[in-house]
Design a protein around this nucleic acid. Sequence first.
DNA 1: TTAAAGTTGACTATTTTGCTGGGTTAAGTA
DNA 2: TACTTAACCCAGCAAAATAGTCAACTTTAA
Lengths: 164, 164
Amino acid sequence: MRLTTKGRYAVTAMLDLAFHSDVKPVTLTDIAARQTISLSYLEQLFSRLRRANMVKGIRGPGGGYTLADTADKINIADIIAAVDEPIDATKCGGEANCQKDQSCLTHELWMGLSDQIRDYLKGITLAQLLEKHHVQTVAKRQDQEAEQVIEIHRHTELLASMNE
Amino acid sequence: MRLTTKGRYAVTAMLDLAFHSDVKPVTLTDIAARQTISLSYLEQLFSRLRRANMVKGIRGPGGGYTLADTADKINIADIIAAVDEPIDATKCGGEANCQKDQSCLTHELWMGLSDQIRDYLKGITLAQLLEKHHVQTVAKRQDQEAEQVIEIHRHTELLASMNE
DNA sequence: TTAAAGTTGACTATTTTGCTGGGTTAAGTA
DNA sequence: TACTTAACCCAGCAAAATAGTCAACTTTAA
């Protein structure tokens, strides 16, 4: 279990999704605007999230992403695991330096600790995070911000189409 | 609080140190041999650990490193914090993208989670890890292995000196 | 004094991050 | 049917982090 900015992005995006996907699918473009994450990077992350069956992609107009399950059944550990490479057998597995399994056992020590953190994060769901008060206030604020951005975007598009 | 291989190396090395430093200071060379971590990388890590007052360096022959405090007073969170860069103000702090503090509040959500993990790891000490049975068995096995390596090392040195 | 050990800094290679930009494909809508 | 909107899928790239190398220097026990 690693904890990096990549995982943070994924959790943030999933939380945004959980907050907005009740009514209709949410486009990555919207999430990108609200959370100021690049669209292409979001695509990469959601590609993994989709393959891990955390979200469902719906194509075409009116499409977007929805959670594959209810928010109370999606935990943080699974989100992070979905976007992170498994650290698979870093030096072990093969013969490499590790003579037989000796050095690998050292890793197991860390893994034990790592497992405990994983268990801890498994106990936290998106639903629990949504309940937090400040998450709601921030999300609402971001909605308002994003509307302005989309407004400007539409305006720009309009001007562009007039110049053609 | 990030969790990467860097932090894992540091925790592993500190645990090795805690296990061996009762009698006399432990050299990085020994830790490197036992834990198969490159000596130079260990030097970098211990440079930070020393500046964070986690360990004491003792120079000269018979020198090495010892814990700066007893094993029951050194927790995992502090070890990781010592070797990791603080993620200081990634995008926030300055004006950058974050309009005023809006986006920064999103980070606070994650930081809350991050703080909880930190608190959790603060509750785990080196002494607690040492008590675990399999840690002791592995450590002993590594001692035996390392002796063989040192044996071979001495043998090679001897041959080298004979060729001069 | 001298050699063993720690200490420091600069430098390199590799991997991971985060991102850009180019497409293709599926599904609604005019 | 044509067009649009979105997901999906690549290939590559720059910056950062990771992991390690090398060389010089300092301290101190023997």
